[in-house]
Every structure is written in structure tokens, then in C-alpha cells.
Design a protein around this nucleic acid. Sequence first.
DNA 1: CCTTACGGTAAGCCATGACTTACAATACGA
DNA 2: TCGTATTGTAAGTCATGGCTTACCGTAAGG
Lengths: 110, 110
Amino acid sequence: MTYNTSALDGFAALGDPTRRAIFERVAARPSAVGELALGLPVSRPAVSQHLRVLKQAGLVRESPQGTRRIYRLDPRGIGAMRDWLEAHWTTALDAFKDFADAQADEETAA
Amino acid sequence: MTYNTSALDGFAALGDPTRRAIFERVAARPSAVGELALGLPVSRPAVSQHLRVLKQAGLVRESPQGTRRIYRLDPRGIGAMRDWLEAHWTTALDAFKDFADAQADEETAA
DNA sequence: CCTTACGGTAAGCCATGACTTACAATACGA
DNA sequence: TCGTATTGTAAGTCATGGCTTACCGTAAGG
């Protein structure tokens, strides 16, 4: 099973609560792996593995700085998700409006 | 571990490819469970279980119609995700801009 | 009524993945 | 050059969850 596996994997990446926490901390301030691990209830390797997933989803970028790797947001991944949601947002509203209208008609008829 | 478990569970819901396929089909046209299962490589109970998750995430709504249940989009869930992404979108752009500027300065200095 | 259609639920199987500890690699500082 | 700091990776464990088949409830229609 493959479906559309493109950049929409951002949803799977942000689906994990720990990963979402990491993402939000990186969003607040670019950080190294160790710093992130300090504020989280998981080990440093776990954070490292999560960052790899986030990176593959295009959600974060790393830039080496000495022996440390600074992680910052990458607009590409979040942009793709944003576009996808925005497209469905309008259709969702339209569909809901049609449904509400139909309900109203039903009420009137009854 | 709990983190923020509110309506952001939409990410976890849409993280699964099968669920995303179901969501897109419901977005294209409100459908019954059986119809959805016909066009997918999984059994009808599987679709039913996925719909439950999507419903709990506020992404779809069901409305009984005879023995059938018509599923349509629910704007609430997708709206929450949209807001969350939109907020981080701007910070992502800002952070990226700062980073790009710093890189440019570094280039100039070198 | 009795039958048929439709869909939710239970139980169980199995792959995925999140996490841990242990280890290897790399860059900096004394 | 040697020790230290920082991080990625390997291997293994364990829980989560996605899928299936079997079953039960319920609403229409003869």
C-alpha cells in the first residue's frame, strides 16, 4: 500500500506527540539535540531519531556547528501541509454549508 | 505521557495513509461506509474503524439515513489543524528568513 | 413477521515504531 | 596528541494499532 506518500508524510511525523513537542520547541528557538532532550521525558537518542523523521518530512533542517547540530524549522514541509489543508478547508466549508441548507429545508418541510 | 492531546489529534488521524484516502473520498463526496470500502484495498470493518478515529478527531460527521450512515466532512477538526499550522507557518518563515540573513552575512564576511 | 442490507463491535494476529542501553564517529580544547 | 563533548547508529524490547474474520443489532420491504 502506497497511496500519496509525497511530502504529506508531515502528518505522520506530527502525529506523534513527542515529535510534535520537539517540533514546537524547535519552532520557539533553534536548538541542539542535547538541549531538546533535557526538556523532554525521553532519552537523547530518542530525540535524535525523532529529528531524523522530522527532517525526512521536510519539517526541520540541521546545520552543523562544531560538534553540535543546530536544528531549525524548514518551511517546505509545513508549507506542503498548509497547502493541503487549505485546499480541503474550503471544500469542507462548502460541504458543510450544503448539508446545513439541506437540514434547514428538511426542517421547513416538516 | 500526554502533551497536548486536544483537537490536534487530527495529525495522528491523517497520519495514516488509508485514513487520509478515506478522508479525501469523503471530502470529494459524502458517502456510506460500504461505498468507501469498495474503492479501497481494505475490508469494510477496517473502514468503519478508521471512520471512528476520524470522527473522534472531529474530521468527519455521520448522519444516519435508513440503515446506512452517510459520512461527510466536519469543518471543526480541519479548522483546528489549519489554525495550528497557520500559526507555525509564520514563525517558520521568520526563522528561515533570519537564518538566510545570517548565512548571507557569513558569506559576506568570508 | 421474516428476510435482506448495512454497519458497528469483539477477538486475535502481526507488523510497525517508539524507546532504551551500548557503541562508534567527529570536532574542539588543553 | 589526548581527553572531552556532542551526536548519530545498532540491536533489542515492548506497546500500539491496523487488519482480518466472525458475530450482533437495527432498519427497510416483501
